[in-house]
Design a protein around this nucleic acid. Sequence first.
DNA 1: TGTTAGCACTCTTATCTGTCGAGTGCTAAA
DNA 2: TTTAGCACTCGACAGATAAGAGTGCTAACA
Lengths: 340, 340
Amino acid sequence: MLTNRQLLVLQVIIDEFIQTAQPIGSRAISKKDGVSYSSATIRNEMADLEDLGYIEKTHSSSGRVPSEKGYRFYVDHLLSPFHLSSSDMRVIKHTFDRGMVEFEQVVQKSAKVLSDLTNYTSIILGPEVFETKLKQIQIISLSDTTAVAILVTNTGHVEHRSFSVPTEIHPSDLEKLVNILNDRLVNVPIVKLQEKLYTEIAQLIDTFTSDLDKAYQYLKAALLDEQPVKLYVGGKTNILMQPEFKDIEKIRSLYSVIEREDKLANILRSNSDGIKVSIGHENKIEEMADCSLITATYSLGDVQMGTIALLGPKRMEYSRVISLLNVLSNQLSKTFNSWY
Amino acid sequence: MLTNRQLLVLQVIIDEFIQTAQPIGSRAISKKDGVSYSSATIRNEMADLEDLGYIEKTHSSSGRVPSEKGYRFYVDHLLSPFHLSSSDMRVIKHTFDRGMVEFEQVVQKSAKVLSDLTNYTSIILGPEVFETKLKQIQIISLSDTTAVAILVTNTGHVEHRSFSVPTEIHPSDLEKLVNILNDRLVNVPIVKLQEKLYTEIAQLIDTFTSDLDKAYQYLKAALLDEQPVKLYVGGKTNILMQPEFKDIEKIRSLYSVIEREDKLANILRSNSDGIKVSIGHENKIEEMADCSLITATYSLGDVQMGTIALLGPKRMEYSRVISLLNVLSNQLSKTFNSWY
DNA sequence: TGTTAGCACTCTTATCTGTCGAGTGCTAAA
DNA sequence: TTTAGCACTCGACAGATAAGAGTGCTAACA
């Protein structure tokens, strides 16, 4: 168990390091407001904190910097509830007040606000098709040989696929087919689509002409194409401003992760609920060992819809960032719930 | 007018510098295959080339590097027609052979191929709405208060907007409205949509009930929202590998441009036809003064559809890159033309 | 017993110095 | 016209030195 004084010292070190990114010396701590001990006393405490693994030296005669264990402790026990500055709140309110009606727009603006306010990189995982249901299928012929299929979900999400139509398939067949599909598939969860298409519908189709079957084969291929993950990243270049990333190699390896949207999406998805903080090596991805990732979820009703996250150096303004994510995830949930 | 020997020396310097990124000395040139003069002779020629502004020294006793004027001359006069290696061709063919049917997919894969093959950053400007025509408008109600409007163009492009519907608007009104719109607007160029909506349609609506007018107001707002530019960027991190960008400041300023999609789109749009090379300060954007940008266009029939570009250091493999862009822009045009 | 002052020690950082080598420009000879 | 030779320039690199920040330890003090 840490003594009160040790807690104080640890807190000062981390608070200070978060601001300056420089190792903190005993003298600097003893001169801080609220600290009434001499530098020698502080030195003793620091030696103990180092033994316990909460802080580290960068070299044998340097000041101390927080270790990952130190950050973890800080986040778990030392975080004071933070009140967002009124200017922060104003910016957020202002963003959400201008009555946006489109999903992408809301998410994109949110990502921008987040990265602008924090100078970190924001990542938002768009709504999963999970639990969303099919509202309608439409097929529109563009020419004799091409058509575009449009799927609309109950959340207002639109997916579309162009596909080529062999000339031997008659437009009326397509139309019939779409009617069948709409009959059978409306309100089916998107994740069940594939299954339904392969069993129930396939059987039904069999009872019709072979022309219809051919049309079905084409449409099926178009509909079941893997759907890209919707990921919105804001402020990618903010990372470049952080002094811990003055090394090009680090930037390169980190960017190589950020560009891999599928990987990133998986990481974000792993957060089931609430706010989660991953510090340094707590991140499963080796390349993110120098970063912290803070994720929060937003939802539609009771259904979790997506994830919103901030990626920055381990030396993050945890308190502020967590408050911001809280406010923003609530805003997102509120906005979406107001729509449906 | 440059002598043949000067041409030779200039060519060797640029070829060599493109490969090594190091200043080239007279001795290195004289030892090259195809050069049968002593280093002293080369030195004299180099002094002349420097006076003429084609090459520069990095310091008073260094080897020479090409100047922008030198690159310009190289691109205009010294470029030998380059034949793509068979492996390059294979990669491209392989990408386009797998029967893609969707616009976004094709463009995205193209961007990836380009950046992978060159280790530069590829930028593709998606099809402009210019000249595309409206194929169909659909409105699908999601709930009592929300609906999504879908526009399909003759090029298979799909745009959608969610919007909220006040309860006083009856679904049947919306339906009527859509029928009117489809009647009047199908085959109207997208760029003319706004105009038409404001004049012709507005008048027509006036003759109906005021309910319809209200629905129209809502729909109009949804349809006329500014449409985002479609820009696909591949291999952003490739820039980090170039030795000329080992300085973080340069990366930051360059990335700040790449992230500004609207700005980037404007630059690409300025290329009207064929292949265009912008070297260093020839780029209007100050931040791109250390880069070269090579753009090519692709088209549907006679109509120019979009632009495809590569961004790299001034020290680019111009010959290969130009060939690649040629092949790829043709492939794109061919693919799209085969669809419609 | 907890706290503090003092001091030797360690390590980083910046600056300066001298040396080496690559490359040039010029001159004179072939 | 071409080339060999040579003095000169400049950057890169390796030590050397000094300054400064910070520590750990010991002894004195309350």
